[in-house]
Amino acid sequence: MSSDQTVLYDVPGAKARVRHRLYGAASIVVALLVLWWVLTKFADKNQLEAAKWSPFLDWVTWKEYLLIGLRQTLIAAVISIVFAAVLGLLLGLGRMSQIRLIRWPCAVFVEFFRAVPVLLMMYFTFRLYNQYGLFSDDLRALAAVVTGLTFYNASVMGEVLRAGVASLPAGQREAGLSIGLRPPQVLRAILVPQALTAMMPILVSQLVIVLKDTALGSAILYDELLNWGQTLGSAQANTVPVLIVVAVIFILLNYALTKVAGRLERRLRRRGASKGVDAEGTGLGAEVTGPDMRYNTQTGL
């Protein structure tokens, strides 16, 4: 990033630095004016009153509303990501299968659920479960949320896995075949384990998407964070402050997760770089100590 940023403009000299500081000051003034305008609007509508914000200093607000909502949000997100990872793995393997009867249904499933909006899926499954009385009443909304999120994210992860396998060097596959493994064995024992490690950061950033999409559950009255926030907002007549607090909770959670994903990716890239040198065969020793050999001893995943 830094390299292309410096390429876009000259390194600022003395005059330019002064000018940039002026621009910076001007933009801060503009930002402050906008902020002031927003705050006066808020004040006009009595949104800055202490009564609207003081509930957040009260532990009861957190204990009986927001933290319950956050717990429900996390429950839905964690269940969905686990199911999606498992189903995604199966779908990815299915799409790479040599048997057409497995490959085609998996392809149709993946393409279909990638195109269907998650909310559409939730509306449908919620009413479907209602109609046939599946799941108990208090679990039905959660089940619908998890179903919608799982099917969509599994399809995405299946595709990510497939792309990960496709991006591996051809030598990996060829080496596996040449030591006498059958193609499905090569896939399971050599290709997928490597693609999976490369997928870790994507899995974590997918968790951000899942976490955000749980908020869709409020549309089918799943009692997640946004839903509890709306209950709280109408109970205390402070909808705007509550929504802002809910948004901040989501932003902090997702920002932290994004950072984790970034760190994972950097770590993998550093490891990948050293691996790359080995794989390119700088010597025979590389083959013995190379990280790929140990996967040959594994029979499955």
Binding site: L211, A215, V240, V246
Partner: peptide
């Protein structure tokens, strides 16, 4: 990017319109 679209959507209706006018 880190706020759920649903929260933004609800905010435009309940916040921007119904509360802030």
């Amino acid at each position: 990017r880190n706020t759920p679209l649903t929260v933004i959507m609800v905010f435009t209706s309940l916040g921007l319109w119904q509360t802030l006018g």
